[in-house]
Simulated assay, not measured.
Amino acid sequence: MAYKVLVVDDSTFFRRRVSDILNQDPELEVIGDAINGRQAIEKVLELDPDVVTMDVEMPLMDGISAVREIMKRKPVPILMFSSLTYEGATATLDAMDAGALDFLPKRFEDIAQNKTEAQMLLCHRVRAIARRKPSLRPGAAGSFVTSGQSASLLSQPPRILSRPPVRAMGGSKHYRALAIGTSTGGPAALQNLLTRIPGNFNYPIFLIQHMPGTFTNAFAKRLDSLCKIRVVEGEDGQLVENGTAYLAPGGKQMVLDSRGNQTRLRVIDDHNDSRYLYKPSVDMTFESIADVYGGDVLAMVLTGMGADGREGCRKLKKLGARIWVQDEASCVVYGMPMAVANAGLADENTSLENLASKLITEMR
């Protein structure tokens, strides 16, 4: 049976365009549309869709307010459409903070090289988040929960429940860096994890999130305002320091360059290696981290589509690094972690909720 989709946008042309594309997919069926946030809430309650596509800027009620209200009354997976501007990025992150799971640019030519590829990507992303079945967390209106785990961006760092320390396989280990790669669902997962890391965390952290360039700058600033550690968007030539998280800039590649006793970031605008499909690429950054730190690394692959990160983990693993993946139940999309796990590279397969406490125990 096809997933039921509600399309929300104040533009008649855009609603029709999205509906036509989605209806071509046998696994998707557009069952209705809405022209503003207020009508979207009514249609969600009336039609019970499996997934909603939502514009940000609309009359009467904007998309962010609509997402927040839907999460309170009848949670459903929501994909946002956004402009690729700093303001658009900020608004989209606000929508994800309210409970939306994913986003795409409104200009389809910004996400693919041709029309067919853009249409396939849209359908793929809608199908992926439609498979998540949300429910309200008791006593926490607006929280978005998938399979018992938080999948929303949280306004406040979540409380860490006391639990016995858990060691990764192999016992104690010497570390020099933490590396994290993610894609769809990653903004929520990264905020959930990074806000729990204490301010005295004495390692550099390298973050690779599949995201447009205008979004990574806004996302880094948001994380920095919420976290005890420092979070910045990586810059070319920047000196790597302990206690700082470096977010790879969208649309570029971030690698490490070590000379003498100093390690610096290199941000590359382009490359000619067909192995790396994404900008930024988890594989490319992880392989660079392996060249600099060898096996003294804890690498994590979190929620996301595809297999980016698998080959980078393979190189790290051969050098003795430890590899953790997010489990299927707490992922928005169990693609990237599954690829690493199926390749036999994962030392830990654990929930998002448990990652922070395990990380602190492992690297303290």
Rank of each mutant, 00 (worst) to 15 (best):
V7L: 02
S11L: 06
T12G: 01
R15F: 01
D20E: 07
I21Q: 07
D25H: 06
E42F: 12
L45K: 12
E46V: 10
F81L: 09
L84P: 06
T90H: 14
T92N: 03
D97E: 12
A100W: 00
L101S: 06
K106C: 06
A112S: 04
R125L: 14
K133L: 09
A140C: 12
F144E: 05
T146D: 03
T146M: 06
G148L: 15
S155C: 06
Q156E: 10
I160Y: 08
L161R: 12
S162E: 12
G170H: 07
S172Q: 15
S172M: 12
H174Y: 01
I180C: 06
T184M: 02
G186S: 00
N200E: 13
F201Q: 00
N202R: 11
L207A: 10
L207T: 12
Q209R: 13
H210V: 14
A220F: 13
A220V: 13
D224P: 03
S225E: 14
D236Y: 05
A245S: 00
G250S: 00
K252C: 01
Q253M: 02
S258Y: 03
Y276T: 09
L277Y: 09
Y278A: 04
S281I: 05
T285G: 04
S288M: 15
G294Q: 07
G294L: 08
L298A: 04
M300P: 03
T303K: 00
A307H: 05
D308K: 06
K315Q: 09
G320E: 03
D327T: 05
V333L: 06
N342K: 15
T350N: 02
L352A: 02
K358G: 08
M363V: 10
R364W: 04
